[in-house]
Structure formats: C-alpha cells, structure tokens
Design a binder for these strands. Structure first.
Length: 421
RNA sequence: GGAAGGGUGCGAGAGUGGUUGAAUCGGCCGGUCUCGAAAACCGGUAACGCCUCCGGGCGUUCGAGGGUUCGAAUCCCUCCCCUUCCGCCA
C-alpha cells in the first residue's frame, strides 16, 4: 500500500496513476478520513498530555501523604473523552485502511499508457520464429504420444489442471528446475527453499488478501494458504526486519510448486500445459536499495531472458502498459516464449518492481550506512521461469517430423538423455 | 494434543502499579590518547504519529488486541508465537 502522507502530498500524481491503470480508488473518502483522523489525534493528544501531567501530580501528592481525590475527580471528564476519541480513532483507522487498500501503486514515468494488452510495448525479440517445413503439433499431442504427461489420470486423482509428469516428462521437469536454480546461483541469487503454505499475515503482506483470495487454495481448518507463487513466502522472509544497508541488495532464488484456483478462467487457453492449478516455478526475489531498483529490474529481466536464450527458445519481452500491469507494480516486463505448435506466445515470466508498495505493508526496512533513519527497501520479483509453458514451448519447438523431441544441449547434463521418443 | 516456562530497544538482558523510553553489558557512531592502530577512557545512539513561528513541542509504542485505574512493561481477559518435557509421527 501507499503511504497516507505520500497520497496526501501527491494526490494529483496518485490519482492520475490510478486512472492510468483504470482502477477506481476511494480518494475522496480517504482524504476526508485523513482530515478527521488528524483532528482526532490533535484533540486526543492534548487531552493525553493533560492526563500525563495530572497523573504526575497525583503521584507527587500521594508520595507526600496528601489527599489527591479532588485532582482525580477533575480527570473524570478527560478520561471519558479520551475513551470516546480512542474508539472513534479505531473506527476511522479501519475505514481508512480499507480505503488505502483500494489505491494502486503509481506507474513509473517510463511505462506506456494503455488500456488493453494490445497497448503493451514489445521491447526485445530474441531468436528466429521457425518456418515449419512440416506440420508442427501442439505439445499435448506429443506428450500423449510419448506418455510423458498424464492429464487424464491427473483429473481422476485430483482434478483438471493437476497433471502427472511421467518418466522422461518427470525427469525433464526436474532437470529444468535444477538448471534454473543453478543458473540463478551463478548470477548471484541465493537459493532458498520456502514453506509452500503460509499464514494470513504473509498472504496479506504480499497483497494476496484481501481481494485475491479467490485465486488461492485455502486450508480452512488451519487458516493456511497454499502459495500461488514463491514470491509470497520468500518476500515475507524479511517481514518486520531492519536490514543493514551493507547487506543490500539481497537476491533469492526459490523453487516451489505453485497453486492457483484460476476460478472462472476456463476457455481456449487452458489446453495441455498452458494453464494449470498446480505448476512448478523458480522465482527470483530481490530486496534492494531504492536508488538501484530500476537497474535491478533490468538485470532481473535479463536473468530471466538468459534462461530462454540458453534453451534456444525464441521469445519476446513486453513492457506492460498502465492498464495491464496490475495493482501493486510500478513497472513490469512480461517474457513470452513462442509455441510453434499452437502458433502463439506463452507468458513464462513476469518481472516487476514494487518499489515500497509491498515492503511498507511488510515493514521491511534498511538502516543507511551513515547511521541515519531507517528507510523502506524496494522489492522486486520475477519468474525464472514458470515450468509448464517452458516445457510446452520446448516440446513444440524441438519436435521432429517423426514426432520425437530433441532435448536442447544446455539440459543434457541435467536430463542425461538427449531425445524423447 | 497435554504440562510448564517465556516473548522488553540494533543484539543480549534487568525491571511486578507512579519522572522507566526503560538499568547493565555488547554493537554502532564520535572524541581523547597514538606516527598509525589496538587497548583504555569519555560522550552519543529507538521507531512511528500529529503539530511547528523549523528552535522544537506533544502523543503512542515493552508479542497482538481489548479491559481495570487519576496513572500500566508491571494487574485482568482473549489471541499469536517461542522454549522444554510428555504423546504422536515422515
């Protein structure tokens, strides 16, 4: 969330940002509540100051063995009024908090204005889109043919969107996870293996609740949430901490399964591995000094892109427009890999800067090296990468006319086989 | 799941109703000493909110939230977490 004072002092900027994102926020209510809140604080603090001095006097009188009942009686109305004010404050704070949760983060000036995905700006292309000299098959035909992903048994055992990976399919999955983690380590990310269920505070910290609880599987009996991404536990790793500046930037790479209900998203995009309820992902998370966060965003994006280059998969990078970037981000890149069997781009990574939006809510700060006041860190994260769509694109890209699948060289050391079929 | 103990500042750790925002030690910053450093000694060192004539003033905060009281780190209630023992268990 944004800082109330920041909103008050930059109301035009924040309003424009929300409009550019196409997100209605309760600005008028917030400003009114802010006024009311400050008035209450003003009155309350004055009364509390009085209470403190009078209490001091009572202590003095009693120590000298005097009778303080007259002074105490005098405080009766003060006490009642303070209680009233505290009650009103609770009310105002609750409403204010609700209001603040409707205010989206402000887009960075470099982000293009736009309403729809068509307004996203391609900023980078890599690799040649192959001109097929034989009919390319979609990956689900090939996974069926080789029996390496079993969707039907997944449906039987768990439900649609929970496939089994079998034989070389499972080995390929494991190979990619290790490959991604090793690459991240080489690029300065510390590996971290988090819990895959989190409590309510953590879900709130990264903004999954309120608002997006429909996306998550919830273990109601214990009020735990299955993680929709490793971003949630890993970003919360440093919740309520004061980090020495010398430790920044902190970079983590985490593999987890990810669980998403994807409620109401059935349709043409859900075939095969395109969209699942459970999938594997390696997530990259950074905690950085505010002055470096946009450089860190660029390197984050390059770290993710590098993986696709090593795998030899053509992709494009899009700078997301204001209307398509989401509530919490200030700037976001999507990486889309080309799936030639389906003739379409599949999103495999999303790299974002949140500036202080997440860290404020999670109270993650750093102490400047010169011993100054604590400041809020900037957080970023990006997929590096989401597995199923990489697998889909890889299978489609490396298929042969006979329907075999050639494993790209970068993975040989991990798969220990070079072809499927 | 049962029993007991405990959660205090950057860290360790005192403090059980009245100048305790909080002893003490450590860390960190500055100074003295020194050619320089170490040691020693001296001094400083919370966050947040509101107001400000920008000097500062006031308020809140001792796991979280309520309550009692003129006054709460200290008493009461609810919840969360940690440690140890028992039970269960990959």
């Amino acid at each position: 969330m944004l800082d109330l004072r920041f909103i008050r002092e930059n109301i035009d900027l924040v309003r424009k940002g929300a409009e550019a994102k196409g997100i209605p926020a309760q600005f008028d209510e917030i400003l009114a509540l802010d006024d009311k809140r400050r008035a209450l604080i003003h009155e309350g603090d004055a009364l509390k100051a009085k209470r403190n001095t009078v209490s001091g006097r009572v202590a003095q009188i009693k120590q000298q063995g005097g009778d303080a009942s007259a002074v105490i009686a005098e405080m009766d109305t003060v006490k009642t009024r303070i209680q009233q004010i505290d009650q009103e404050m609770r009310d105002v704070d609750a409403k204010l908090n609700e209001g603040l949760l409707t205010v989206p983060n402000v887009p960075h000036p470099s982000v293009p204005f736009g309403r729809t995905p068509d307004d996203n700006k391609p900023v980078f292309h890599w690799g040649e889109i192959p001109k097929p000299d034989f009919p390319y098959k979609p990956h689900w035909e090939l996974t069926d043919k080789h029996g390496i992903v079993d969707f039907n048994r997944g449906s039987k055992v768990s439900g649609a969107g929970f496939p089994f990976y079998v034989g070389k399919g499972a080995m390929l999955e494991r190979a990619l996870i290790n490959f991604f983690l090793d690459q991240a380590a080489q690029r300065g990310y510390r590996e971290i293996a988090p819990p895959i269920v989190v409590n309510e505070d953590s879900a709130r910290g990264t903004g999954q609740i309120p608002d997006k609880e429909d996306l998550m599987y919830i273990v109601t009996r214990d009020q735990l949430y299955l993680v929709p991404t490793a971003e949630v536990p890993v970003t919360n790793f440093h919740r309520d901490e004061l980090i020495p500046e010398s430790e920044l930037p902190i970079r983590y790479a985490a593999y987890t399964p990810c669980f998403r209900r994807e409620a109401g998203s059935y349709g043409k995009d859900v075939r095969g591995l395109n969209r699942l309820h459970q999938f594997d992902k390696v997530e990259l998370v950074k905690f950085v000094h505010p002055s470096t966060s946009y450089d860190e965003l660029e390197s984050l994006r390059q770290d993710a892109e590098h993986l696709l280059q090593l795998l030899g998969l053509p992709y494009r990078t899009l700078l997301m427009c204001t209307g398509d970037m989401g509530f919490t981000q200030t700037k976001k890149y999507d990486l889309e890999v080309w799936a030639p069997g389906q003739q379409k781009w599949l999103e495999v990574s999303s790299c974002s800067n949140f500036e202080t939006f997440q860290a404020r809510r999670m109270n993650i700060r750093f102490r400047p090296g010169n011993g100054g006041k604590p400041e809020i860190v900037h957080t970023l994260n990006g997929s590096g990468l989401a597995l199923p769509r990489v697998v889909a694109a890889l299978i489609e890209h490396y298929q042969t006319p006979e329907g075999k699948i050639i494993v790209p060289k970068a993975l040989h050391a991990y798969t220990r086989f070079e072809v499927i079929g």
